[in-house]
Design a protein around this nucleic acid. Structure first.
Lengths: 119, 119
DNA sequence: CTTATATATGAATATGTGTTCATATATTGC
DNA sequence: GCAATATATGAACACATATTCATATATAAG
């Protein structure tokens, strides 16, 4: 749907260009899905712990003080988004980070959080 | 709650250090709240448009093809998280980005999304 | 094959969240 | 004051999602 600008100073042509350059609907959805993964404190804590060390499910359960089942469910989500990988050793499964971007995203988000008057 | 590692090769001391270094519960919550804001495609599109130009509510409504009310609700969330700012001109209110990190976060997320086999 | 252990999974539930609808507020011009 | 316009807001609803409980799967040891 082409848009008509209600405001005075934006040429219709420029508006159209901007709208046309919007990443496709699918890309936007993939982007928001990516961020959704980080939008949960349990998953965030799991990612934090894995950023320091490889851990098995039981340990993540203990570290986060959450039930094993909850951790397994969240690890599945992290797996599907390729943010963690795992290896089996007997009955134990060790998880670790599978993405170099995780650390970067953390760093920038922290910048935002900590800026301003100790907000 | 101090944790006892179920796995063989991690010294209890190191575990404790890792858990102790976890950002406080409040910080984790603020972090996940920050990401939650990006975890919605409507908000993401608004942020994208604002990254290209300042816009009034009616224009954002037209560009996103969503009702004015929905846009206002989302803009409120973006305001509360200090991601956008606004200025009034008559009855019209112009919104723009209020955070330098937004662009960076976008870039890194896109890296993640576009890596691999055109996933 | 049976038991024990570690992890995964499905169903149920409770809580959170985005959109819509109706309406309120704020500004401008008359 | 009143009408018109742009935006904001509260309630309702529909939908998504995180956790729990019970149970299934997988591996190892005997």
């Amino acid at each position: 749907m082409t848009t008509k600008c209600h405001c005075k100073d934006i040429p219709a042509q420029e508006l159209q260009n901007i709208q046309a350059a919007l990443p496709g609907g699918q890309d936007i959805d993939r982007l928001s899905d990516f961020f959704k993964v980080f939008g949960d404190s349990t998953r965030l804590r799991i990612l934090y712990f894995l950023s320091r060390h490889e851990f098995c499910v039981a340990d993540l359960s203990a570290l986060t003080e959450m039930q094993q089942s909850a951790i397994s469910h969240q690890l599945k989500i992290l797996r599907l988004h390729r943010l963690v990988k795992y290896r089996r050793e007997g009955t134990t499964i060790y998880y670790s980070l599978d993405d170099q971007h995780v650390q970067k995203v953390f760093a920038i988000a922290l910048e935002h959080i900590t800026e301003g008057t100790g907000k």
